[in-house]
Design a protein around this nucleic acid. Structure first.
Lengths: 120, 120
DNA sequence: ATAATATATGAACACAAGCTCATATGAAAG
DNA sequence: CTTTCATATGAGCTTGTGTTCATATATTAT
């Protein structure tokens, strides 16, 4: 006698097939984790238009220079941004166009699905 | 005398122009935060192939039923998955094809840029 | 060399987030 | 209506993460 209405077993197997290796799943989550912070998201958006030095980003976001530097390090370590020295200042820029497309996808998801100030 | 080699001011203004509202930035970060956990990523991948009930996902991931339920709630609250009741079991499925494309973008970023077991 | 400017970094702290454990809900079977 | 099966949920604990504060490094100017 079947106790479930949908097949319990073949569905599991199919799901198991498509599951990537644990390491990749973990790396993937770690990548998205980088985008999962408002400060970092703001930094990325600011670099969408122009390359900027630390002080400029600090001003733009109205935060501590230290806080910005810490987040810049996170972003740089994950290869999403890169920097070059120019005299005393260090200029940061996007390392990769994937950043734009990933953030763009999320942006689309929000602006399409959700309704920002649509009656109230 | 200019103390900076790149223009400090117009770049800032340009960056300020393209910066979306704080609320949207925050929502965007919150969206990516959902993808930034291995357990949730595994759940999403498992639902890429088949719709599954809680017990199946629990088996598949080899975790506590409680842990899974908690994460399913997070995913459901953020509208990435949905569910329907079928007798005693509750079946979860992807709510949106954006999920596939967002995860797909991240996946591409990793598999293209990085080199998985490419000579060690 | 010394001072000034620009950025980076480590430690400490506060808060968020995920898991576990116990328990609650809800549907179906006896 | 009581029991069983499937899932949900709240509290507590533990770990992770972002910010601040103080300080270090690095480059340029005096």
């Amino acid at each position: 006698m079947e106790q479930h209405m949908h097949d319990h077993g073949s569905a599991l197997d199919t799901a198991r097939q498509g599951m990537p290796a644990d390491e990749l799943l973990c790396d993937l989550a770690d990548l998205f984790k980088i985008f999962g912070d408002t400060t970092r998201m703001k930094i990325l958006f600011s670099l969408f238009e122009e390359e900027l030095c630390v002080n400029e980003i600090t001003e733009l976001l109205g935060m501590t220079q230290s806080a910005i530097s810490h987040q810049l390090k996170v972003l740089k370590d994950s290869k999403l941004i890169a920097n070059r020295r120019e005299g005393k200042t260090i200029i940061y820029f996007l390392a990769d166009d994937h950043v734009r497309s990933i953030v763009g996808q999320g942006y689309e998801h929000l602006t399409e699905e959700n309704h920002y100030d649509e009656n109230i």
